[in-house]
Design a protein around this nucleic acid. Structure first.
Length: 846
RNA sequence: GCCCCGGUGGCGGAAUCGGUAGACGCAGCGGACUUAAAAUCCGCUUUUCCGAAAGGGGAGUGCCGGUUCGAGUCCGGCCCGGGGCACCA
């Protein structure tokens, strides 16, 4: 019988769905395992690039099931968001309808891949039964001062007509639509993630099973800096201006001060300046610049005409305004040390401000003030302080420490830790999101919606006319409400929440998804969380994972959970790439239209350029799974996807490469038919070499799955299958049933349908419910012979085989018995014999 | 600019501890089966030299140097590619 995946796959998929094999009772006993793939945004059809994430997760889940773990593997939908709204404007379809339709299609696709999820726990963030808890969470945060309304310069996307979080601005552009982001001063809702900056930073040290790369990205994002706050007296103001510096040791070199144009003292400083109007218009211009424009403008500044007093050198230093000083970081004011900071150096050169060298190389001469071509920057003890009074001669680290001590003794400041992290802006002026449960009452001001009135339901009857701001704001019955405090008229908040709020706690909801009384059942959540294995794309390394960690810490502090960190093991898979084609105008061309001439791609007269990029609809380089499955089956796609490359790496999809996986599965299938046909021969054992290979393979595949090395796990299975195939070829299937069944078991997480079918043909009970993971016997893994390499002067001169286990006597006997090797050794003095791991021995001669 | 990660055949990649580099797969070449094609199966496949063959020699993991009996793997210095952050004081 031929291997025909299309005949067998739908049958098993239906069987698994009917038997609800992945449904798990969260109160059932057993050693728990919480597996989770990041829940997707339901954007529509899935392609093979998306498949990698889910196929990988399913393989791991099936493996742990076979290991007997009580495994929870739920799935849901990150269902709010901008694309649904844009689709509504474009196609005239309600975002809800569009979203739910996509969910149905994607769910079907998961089924066709043979992926098992516990659908009884499905959640969609756009449903009131989910987002009411989003609102509840917001109220708890508000109660604790962790949600607040504040006015701040914010990122505004003119295209999407909404504000963006800092995390959503990439190279000064909106990460959704690519429009240049503008700065606007707006009153918005924020979550106070900065309150947790220190714990989010310190917590990274406990995440020992997270990729170093992700932890590093988070660490950089949080941006912890140690330094000092120092007050510089300003006679003209009557109060000092506080600066933050990470290099207090260079304070004797601080020859001027620079304030951000937004600094609160600026107005007072320039009040009597003769060119006040010019300075003010310059400030306005700088404030209206986007972050990108501000940087591209280069360093610009204005002199306020006032001075501050350097508290260490006691000199009067000029106070400048500078576009390169950020209002949001530190105190919005800096002491400038041009000799030892490149930015200050450039500013000093531009405006001819004094430069003073106060650090010299250890054991060397300090550079002359006028001689520097760039700032001299040393942060370790290869630099020492000079011309710095009480810290003269101290290496940099000690000089920093000493200076902070002096600052604190004199009461003019203190050692400080500062973070780059800013508060999380969650207001969105969009319709398709969770309404923020707040009211504006003319009499009582800002009033939270009482918990018992939740959910604040998102009205469905709104018109989608296009770009006129948030349609919610025009919905009369939504906007007009009653104040719960005074009973008077109130206006509802019409901003909705950033969808990253929805995804910052969804993994907690999966345990008790239908609980109508509370956000989750703490007892059950404390049993199942943290998530044991979280799997998703590297693009979430900062945003989602940082927000989820923040909310989990906050819920812990509310006494709702016993854990602070949500994800114990994290795995980030790499993207799938494919060749795409661009015409000379730079737009993408469908591969169907490409003609190859002399090995170069053309469309008509236009020569195209080929580019390997991330698989995506817009680049016209997606491979839809349907055709692939119709031709080769889902098992082939699964095996190929996992075999293609190490899963954390980027991988280029090759249509040619797929057949290798199909052939492999076909051979395993064919072998099954032969074994089935073989006459039963009682007492006949598999050859020792096959048994040994079986145990070696069990051991290899087990450890490789646990380490997420699926590509080599599959290559080990191919090797075993090749060896078993040779044995079947040589002696028929008789006696090979046991190793063959082990092969099926090991292959099952990767190719569940085919292995299930053959398993049942062999007369076994249903695989997915009953089959256990095989165990390797180390004693039976040992090779019977050990190969010994003989080296002379570092050159390999021959190999001899020694019966295992190899000992010295046997090695020399084997060398003697090997004519060629013996010839090499004759007359030479043996210097050293090295035994390695009891396996390979080199005899070294000099 | 700062930080991080890589560089191995025509290609994807393998090589738990420093121990026969190139497993496994794709593509390619040769062959079997077939009226033919597809499918399938078998063999070869880093490179170069000697040899009719069996077989044997040399070189080889981005470059230069070091440690070691032995280096893709460890150390130092470069070159190239990718990613993250980006005026964060």
């Amino acid at each position: 019988m031929q291997y025909r995946p299309t005949d067998i796959e739908p049958k098993w998929q239906q069987r698994w769905a009917e038997a609800k094999v992945a449904e798990i009772d969260v109160t059932a006993p057993g050693r728990k395992l919480y597996m989770l793939n990041m829940f997707p945004y339901p954007s529509g059809d899935l392609h093979v690039g998306h498949g990698r994430n889910y196929i990988l997760g399913d393989a791991v889940y099936r493996y742990y099931r076979m290991q007997g773990r009580a495994a929870l593997n739920p799935m849901g939908w990150d269902a709010f968001g901008l694309p649904a709204e844009n689709a509504a404007i474009k196609f005239g379809k309600h975002p809800r309808e569009w979203t739910l339709g996509n969910i149905q299609r994607m769910k079907k696709q998961f089924g066709r891949w043979g992926i098992l999820y516990d659908w009884s726990k499905e959640i969609a963030s756009c449903e009131p039964e989910y987002y009411r808890w989003n609102q509840w969470l917001f109220l708890q945060l508000h109660k604790r001062g962790l949600a607040y309304r504040g006015t701040a310069p914010v990122n505004w996307c003119p295209q999407d007509q909404t504000v963006l979080a800092n995390e959503q601005v990439i190279d000064g552009r909106c990460d959704r639509c690519g429009a240049l982001v503008e700065q606007r001063e707006l009153s918005q809702w924020f979550l106070k993630i900065t309150e947790y900056a220190d714990r989010l930073d310190a917590g990274l040290d406990t995440l020992t099973h997270w990729p170093e790369k992700v932890k590093l990205m988070q660490r950089n994002w949080i941006g912890r800096s140690l330094g000092a706050d120092v007050d510089f007296p300003v006679p003209a103001l009557g109060h000092p201006i506080r600066v933050f510096t990470t290099r207090p040791d260079t304070i004797f070199g601080a020859t001027f001060m620079v304030l951000a144009p937004e600094h609160p003292d600026v107005a007072a400083l320039i009040a009597d300046h003769p060119d006040r109007d010019e300075i003010e218009s310059w400030i306005t211009a700088v404030r209206n610049q986007s972050a990108l424009e501000r940087q591209e403008a280069g360093k610009e500044g204005r002199f306020t005409g006032k001075t501050a007093v350097n508290p260490f050198s006691e000199e009067e230093i000029p106070i400048w305004l500078g576009n390169f000083v950020l209002p949001q970081y530190g105190t919005g004011a800096i002491m400038s040390v041009p000799a030892h900071d490149q930015r200050d150096f450039e500013f000093a050169k531009q405006y001819a401000l004094p430069i003073r060298v106060v650090i010299a190389p250890q054991g060397g001469e300090a550079a002359g003030d006028a001689d520097l071509a760039e700032a001299y920057i040393v942060k370790d003890d290869s630099g020492v302080s000079v011309r710095s009074g009480p810290i003269d001669g101290l290496p940099v680290p000690q000089a920093i420490e000493r200076t902070i001590a002096i600052i604190e003794e004199r009461g003019i400041g203190k050692g400080t830790v500062r973070y780059r992290l800013r508060d999380w802006l969650i207001s969105r002026q969009r319709y398709w999101g969770t309404p923020i449960p707040m009211l504006y009452c003319d009499r009582c001001g800002l009033v939270p919606v009482p918990e018992e009135q939740l959910p604040v339901t998102l009205p469905l009857d709104v018109p989608f006319t296009g770009r006129e701001g948030n349609p919610l704001a025009k919905h009369e019955t939504f906007v007009n409400a009653t104040c719960p405090q005074c009973g008077g008229p109130a206006r509802r908040e019409t901003d909705t929440m950033d969808t990253f709020v929805d995804s910052s706690w969804y993994f907690l909801r999966f345990v008790t998804p239908r609980d109508e009384q509370r956000i989750f059942d703490p007892e059950k959540v404390n049993r199942w969380l943290p998530v044991d294995q979280y799997i998703g794309g590297i693009e979430h390394a900062i945003l989602h994972l940082l927000y989820a960690r923040f909310i989990t810490h906050a819920l812990h502090d509310m006494g709702l959970t016993s854990f602070e960190e949500p994800f114990t093991n994290l795995f980030n898979q790499g993207v799938i790439t494919k060749e795409g084609f661009k015409n000379p105008q730079g737009s993408w061309v469908s591969p169907d239209e490409v003609e190859w001439r002399d090995g170069r791609p053309f469309r008509g007269q236009e020569e195209l350029t080929a580019e390997v990029t991330k698989m995506s609809k817009s680049r016209l380089n997606v491979v839809p799974p349907d055709e692939l499955i119709a031709r080769y089956g889902a098992d082939t796609e699964r095996v190929y996807t996992l075999f293609i490359a190490p899963p954390e790496k980027e991988a280029a999809w090759s249509d040619d490469g797929v057949v290798g996986a199909f052939r492999f599965l076909g051979r395993v299938w064919q072998m099954g038919q032969q074994i089935l046909e073989a006459a039963p021969t009682p007492g006949l054992q598999a050859p020792t070499s096959i048994t040994r290979k079986m145990h070696q393979t069990i051991s290899a595949v087990t450890s490789r799955i646990e380490r997420f090395e699926f590509n080599t796990a599959i290559s080990a299975l191919m090797e075993f299958s090749n060896a078993l195939g040779d044995a079947v070829q040589a002696g028929g299937g008789a006696g090979l049933r046991a190793p063959y069944e082990a092969l099926l078991q090991l292959l099952h997480p990767f190719a569940p349908h085919m292995t299930e079918e053959v398993w049942s043909m062999l007369g076994n009970e249903e695989f997915v419910l009953t089959s256990a993971w095989p165990v390797a016997d180390p004693a039976l893994m040992q090779e019977e012979t050990v190969v010994i390499a003989v080296q002379v002067n570092g050159k390999l001169r021959g190999q001899v085989e020694v019966p295992a286990p190899a000992d010295e006597q046997r090695v020399w006997a084997a060398v003697d018995a090997h004519e060629r090797v013996r010839t090499w050794l004759e007359g030479k003095e043996i210097v050293k014999k090295i035994y390695v791991a009891g396996k390979l021995v080199n005899v070294v001669i000099r």
